Simulated assay, not measured.
Amino acid sequence: MKKLYFVHLLNDYSGSPRVLNQTITALRQQGNDCTLFVGSSGHGVLDELDVATHTFTYKRFDNRWLTLLAYVWSQVALFFALVWRVRPEAVVLVNTMLPFGAALAARLRGAKVVYHVHETSIRPAALKSFLRRVIACCASKVIYVSKYLQVQEGIAGVPAVTVYNGLSEAFQRQAMATAYQPVRKGRFNVLMLASLKAYKGVNEFVALAAALAEDPLLKFTLVLNASQREVDEYFASRSVPCNLEIYPASSNVASFYGDASLVLNLSHVDGWIETFGLTILEAMSFGIPTIVPPVGGPIELVCDGVEGYQIDALNHELLVRTVVRLSKDSQLCQALSERARAKASEFSTANFQKKIVMVFDEL
C-alpha cells in the first residue's frame, strides 16, 4: 500500500477533474491510502469522491492579472500545506501542469512526483516555461493523455507514458443502453459542450446556429462549463438565435448526449489545440457522429469520414454544408454512429485503470 497525494487546482465538470476522479478511484481499489488537495474555488466531480480532502486558497477574478496573483498565492499556500505532511515514501500526483507548489514541496521532502498532463495551452508564455522547468526538476514520470501531447510537449530526461482517458463504467453502461437516432421528436439536435471561452468555438457555434435558423429540422444545444451568471453576462450583449438553447454547467451530461444527433468540438486550431477531447469520446460512446478539429488529440479518436469529420472551426461554409448534409442523411449518420461506438469501446475503464495502476506500481 502506498501513501498517495493528489493535487488539482480547480474543481469543476471539465475533463481533467473527471479523469482525476477515475484515477483516484482506480488506485483506491488497489488498497492505496489516498488524500486529495484541491483549490477552494469551484465545485464539481471531485466532490463525489469519498477520500480525505483538504482545500487550499484559490480564487478566480474577472481580471486576469488578479487571477494570476491569486494563482501564485495559492501555490504558496499549497506548498506549505503539503511540505509538513508529505514523507519520502509518498507519491504526489500533480493533475495538470498548474499546481507547481505541490511538486516543489514533494521534491523538497524527497517524495516521488507524477504529473498527469492534459493540456499545455498556458499563458503567459513565461508561466508555461516556468512550469516546464518545475516538471523537469521534480517529476519522476509524466503521464500524457495523447500521443500528440507526448510528442509535442515531452520534456527531455523525464520518463513519459501515454495513457488515454477512459470512461466510467456507469457512463459506458448508460451510453450502451441508449439507442442512437439521427432525428428525435422531429428535430436534428446539434450539441456542443465547452468552456465559456472564445477560443473554444462558442461564437462559431452561435454563428452556425444563426446561419441555419430558417431550417425547421435543426436544433442547437450549447452546454457551457460556467455558472448561470457567467452565461447570462456573456450573452447579455449578444444575439442568440431562436433555434439555440444554452445551458450552464451540468453534472448530468449524459442526458444531453441522449438527445443529440451530432456533437461538435470547435476549438480554434490557432488558439487552443485539443490534446484529447473527453467530450468527443463521451459522444462516440453514445454512438453520436462528431465534428472535431483537424489537429491534436482528436484525430487519434476520429478519422475523417469514418467516425465523424475533421473540420477547422473557422471554415464556416464547410461546417454549414456538413451539418445540413448529415441532417438529411439518416443512413450516413447511422453508419458513422456504428463506427463511433465501436471506436469508443476501445477506451474502457478497465484499460485506463490497468495502465494507471501500472504507472504507480513501477515507481
Rank of each mutant, 00 (worst) to 15 (best):
Thr221Glu: 14
Thr221Met: 04
Leu222Ser: 00
Leu222Asn: 00
Leu222Gly: 00
Leu224Asn: 01
Asn225Arg: 06
Asn225Ser: 10
Asn225Pro: 03
Ala226Met: 09
Ala226Arg: 02
Ala226Ile: 03
Ser227Leu: 07
Gln228Ala: 13
Gln228Ile: 04
Arg229Ala: 13
Arg229Asn: 10
Glu230Gly: 15
Glu230Ile: 04
Val231Met: 05
Val231Trp: 01
Val231Asp: 00
Asp232His: 09
Asp232Val: 11
Glu233Ala: 12
Glu233Ser: 11
Ala236Gly: 08
Ala236Trp: 06
Ala236Thr: 12
Arg238His: 10
Arg238Lys: 15
Arg238Leu: 14
Arg238Pro: 01
Ser239Arg: 14
Val240Cys: 05
Pro241Ser: 09
Pro241Trp: 09
Pro241Gly: 03
Cys242His: 14
Cys242Gly: 09
Asn243Arg: 13
Asn243Lys: 09
Asn243Gln: 11
Asn243Trp: 06
Leu244Tyr: 02
Leu244Thr: 00
Glu245Cys: 12
Tyr247Gly: 01
Tyr247Ile: 03
Pro248Tyr: 08
Ala249Glu: 04
Ala249Ile: 01
Ala249Trp: 00
Ala249Asp: 03
Ala249Val: 01
Ser250Glu: 09
Ser250Val: 14
Ser250Phe: 05
Ser250Cys: 13
Ser251Asp: 14
Asn252Lys: 14
Val253Ala: 03
Val253Lys: 09
Phe256Thr: 01
Phe256Trp: 05
Phe256Arg: 03
Phe256Leu: 07
Tyr257His: 15
Tyr257Cys: 03
Asp259Gln: 15
Ala260Trp: 01
Ala260Thr: 11
Ser261Cys: 07
Ser261Ile: 01
Ser261Ala: 12
Leu262Ile: 08
Leu262Ser: 02
Leu262Glu: 02
Leu262Arg: 06
Leu264Tyr: 05
Leu264Phe: 05
Leu264Gln: 06
Leu266Pro: 02
Ser267Lys: 08
His268Tyr: 10
His268Leu: 10
Val269Ala: 07
Asp270Gln: 15
Asp270Pro: 06
Asp270His: 15
Trp272Phe: 06
Trp272Ile: 05
Trp272Gly: 06
Trp272Arg: 07
Ile273Ala: 05
Glu274Ile: 07
Glu274Gly: 07
Glu274Lys: 04
Thr275Asn: 15
Thr275Gly: 11
Thr275Glu: 12
Phe276Ala: 08
Phe276Pro: 02
Phe276Thr: 08
Gly277Ser: 09
Gly277Leu: 06
Gly277Met: 09
Leu278Asp: 05
Ile280Tyr: 02
Leu281Thr: 11
Leu281Trp: 07
Glu282Trp: 08
Ala283Arg: 07
Ala283Ile: 04
Ala283Gly: 12
Ser285Lys: 10
Phe286Met: 07
Phe286Arg: 04
Gly287Trp: 04
Gly287Arg: 11
Gly287Lys: 13
Ile288Leu: 13
Ile288His: 05
Pro289Trp: 02
Ile291Asp: 00
Val292Ala: 05
Val292Gly: 00
Pro293Tyr: 01
Pro293Thr: 02
Pro294Ile: 14
Pro294His: 06
Pro294Tyr: 06
Val295Leu: 11
Val295Asn: 05
Val295Thr: 13
Gly296Leu: 13
Gly296Pro: 10
Gly296Met: 11
Gly297Tyr: 03
Pro298Lys: 03
Val302Gly: 00
Cys303Pro: 04
Cys303Gln: 15
Asp304Leu: 14
Gly305Ala: 06
Gly305Gln: 09
Gly305Tyr: 05
Val306Cys: 06
Val306His: 07
Glu307Met: 04
Tyr309Leu: 02
Tyr309Asn: 00
Gln310Met: 09
Gln310Asn: 14
Ile311Cys: 02
Asp312Val: 02
Asp312Asn: 14
Leu314Ile: 11
Leu314Gln: 14
